[in-house]
Simulated scan of single mutants.
Amino acid sequence: MSRVSQAQALENRRRAVAAASQLFRERGVNGISVADLMKSIGLTTGGFYKQFASKEALIAEAAQAAFGDLDLLLASFDTDQGDHDTARGALVDFYLSAEHRDRPGTGCPTAGFAGDMAREPTAGEVRETYATGVQEFASWMSTDTDDGLPIVATLVGAILLARATAGTELSEQILESTHKALTAPPGLHPQSSTRAA
Rank of each mutant, 00 (worst) to 15 (best):
T45I: 07
G46E: 00
F48W: 02
F48G: 00
K50G: 07
K50P: 01
K50E: 02
A53I: 01
A53H: 05
S54F: 02
S54W: 01
L58R: 03
L58H: 03
I59K: 03
A60I: 00
E61R: 12
E61K: 13
Q64I: 07
Q64D: 04
A66W: 08
A66Q: 03
F67T: 01
G68W: 00
D69M: 09
D69T: 10
L70C: 07
D71S: 10
D71Q: 11
L73I: 10
L73S: 10
L74Y: 01
A75W: 12
D78I: 03
T79K: 12
D80K: 11
D80I: 01
Q81G: 05
G82Q: 04
H84Y: 06
H84I: 00
H84P: 00
D85A: 10
D85P: 00
T86S: 11
A87L: 03
A87E: 04
R88F: 05
G89W: 10
A90R: 06
A90L: 05
A90F: 05
L91Y: 13
L91A: 08
V92H: 03
Y95I: 06
A98K: 12
A98V: 11
E99T: 14
E99W: 12
R101E: 04
R101Q: 09
D102K: 09
R103A: 13
P104S: 05
P104K: 03
G105K: 11
G105H: 13
T106L: 13
G107W: 04
C108V: 05
P109I: 09
T110A: 15
G112W: 01
A114V: 08
A114C: 09
G115L: 13
G115Y: 08
D116H: 00
A118G: 07
A118L: 12
R119A: 11
P121Y: 11
A123S: 14
G124K: 15
R127L: 04
E128W: 14
Y130L: 03
T132D: 07
G133N: 04
V134T: 09
V134I: 13
F137Q: 00
S139H: 15
M141F: 02
T143Q: 06
D144N: 14
G148E: 05
G148I: 01
L149C: 07
L149N: 10
P150M: 04
P150N: 06
V152G: 02
L155A: 06
V156F: 11
V156E: 02
V156W: 09
G157Y: 03
A158D: 00
I159K: 12
I159S: 05
L160R: 15
L161T: 06
L161P: 02
A162H: 10
R163W: 07
R163I: 09
A166M: 15
T168G: 07
T168L: 07
T168D: 05
L170M: 11
E172Q: 13
Q173R: 15
I174Q: 02
L175D: 01
L175P: 02
E176Y: 08
E176F: 07
T178Y: 04
H179Q: 04
K180A: 12
A181H: 09
A181I: 11
T183V: 14
H189A: 13
Q191T: 13
S192D: 11
